[in-house]
Every structure is written in structure tokens, then in C-alpha cells.
């Protein structure tokens, strides 16, 4: 009887020590849940969720301070993924935060631009190149479509242009809609 208790106690001590060691040895930097949520968010950095960027929103979700349906660029798919990750119920996009729009990039009308640099200061991902009093241009590949540069522009020369479908980004449709079979 005593021997059994001793064996169990010894086991508990050894396992406890091992666990303790592992938790120190394999400590994960940062909060893994925040990272996981942040990986789902579209990184538009637009602030439509009410937080100053995707990461702060991810932190708020992780803390339970924000709902999962506040990100319009992430859209329905994003909400579904978040619901899956967090084991919460899916809910439609909250209207007060905006609507899901086709993905666009900002475009500067270079004839109107006065080179005031205000848009550059607003862009969260440094997608705008230019210098004071020089015409500014947006690098479309870097633009996340956050629309934060529209408002500060004093001459309203920035517009959002939807990304067109091209041969390169065209996607095969789900077969139910277009059964195009060429096999003999």
C-alpha cells in the first residue's frame, strides 16, 4: 500500500518536473492565439473594425473584447474561418462596420496630384511613393485597398479601382456551373 502510494507520488513528481521543464523549454513567444487570428485577418489595416489595425483587432478578439464579425474586407469567409478557429457561432458581417466590397486598389490621378504627401502619411503599408511637391504614385502590388488615403487628399485625386479579372488571375469555376468536358 505504502509502496503503491510512493510509486504514484514519485510518478507525479517526475511528470510534474518534466512538464514544468517543457513549459519553460518550449515556451512560445507571443500569444499563439493572437497570431492565429491575425493570420486569418486580411491585413488590409483599414481600421474599419474600430481598431488601429489587424493585429490590435486580433488581440481584442483573443481577449474576448471584440466580436468576430467586424472586418468587412475579410468578409463572410473570414468570419467563417474565425468562427471555426474559436469554436464560435457564425454570424453575418456587422453592418455598422461596413460592407464587403470587391477587392480594389487605390489609383492617383497624376495630373491632379499636388504632391502634398498627406496620402503617404495615411498609408499604413507605405504603398505610396513620391516626395514633397512631386507627383505621387501608388504601387498596386503593395496597396491593400484600405481606402485610408482617400480622405486626406485635399484635391480628391485618389479613386479606388476594382482589380480586373485577367488571364493570369482567372479561376476555374466550380464544375456545377460550367460543365465543359472535352474528353472523347
Amino acid at each position: 500500500m505504502i509502496a503503491a502510494i510512493l510509486v504514484m507520488a514519485l510518478g507525479a513528481v517526475v511528470l510534474g518536473a518534466a512538464l514544468g521543464y517543457a513549459s519553460i523549454k518550449f515556451k512560445v513567444e507571443g500569444d499563439p492565439l493572437v497570431e492565429k487570428i491575425d493570420a486569418i485577418l486580411p491585413q488590409t489595416q483599414c481600421g474599419q473594425c474600430g481598431f488601429p489595425g489587424c493585429k490590435p483587432y486580433a488581440e481584442a478578439i483573443a481577449k474576448g473584447e471584440a466580436d468576430i464579425n467586424c472586418c468587412p474586407p475579410g468578409g463572410e469567409e473570414g468570419i467563417r474561418k474565425l468562427a471555426d478557429l474559436l469554436g464560435r457561432e457564425f454570424k453575418p458581417l456587422s453592418e455598422e462596420h461596413g460592407v464587403e466590397k470587391p477587392k480594389s486598389v487605390a489609383f492617383i490621378d497624376e495630373n491632379t496630384c499636388i504632391g502634398c504627401t498627406l496620402c503617404m502619411q495615411a498609408c499604413p503599408v507605405d504603398a505610396i511613393v513620391g516626395a514633397a511637391k512631386q507627383m505621387h504614385t501608388i504601387v498596386p502590388k503593395l496597396c491593400t485597398g484600405c481606402e485610408l488615403c482617400l480622405e486626406p487628399c485635399p484635391v480628391d485625386c485618389i479613386t479606388m479601382v476594382p482589380i480586373p479579372e485577367t488571364v493570369a488571375n482567372w479561376k476555374w469555376k466550380y464544375p456545377t456551373f460550367a460543365i465543359k468536358k472535352v474528353t472523347a
Binding site: P42, Q45, V125, D126
Partner: peptide
């Protein structure tokens, strides 16, 4: 999309 998002995250964090 993912690689674009990763790049945006990096650029945002850098900013």
C-alpha cells in the same frame, strides 16, 4: 492572397 497579406503585415509592422 496569403503572401500578399503577409507582405502587408510586414510592411505595416515595419511602419
Amino acid at each position: 492572397e496569403k503572401s500578399a497579406a503577409d507582405e502587408a503585415r510586414e510592411r505595416y509592422e515595419f511602419r
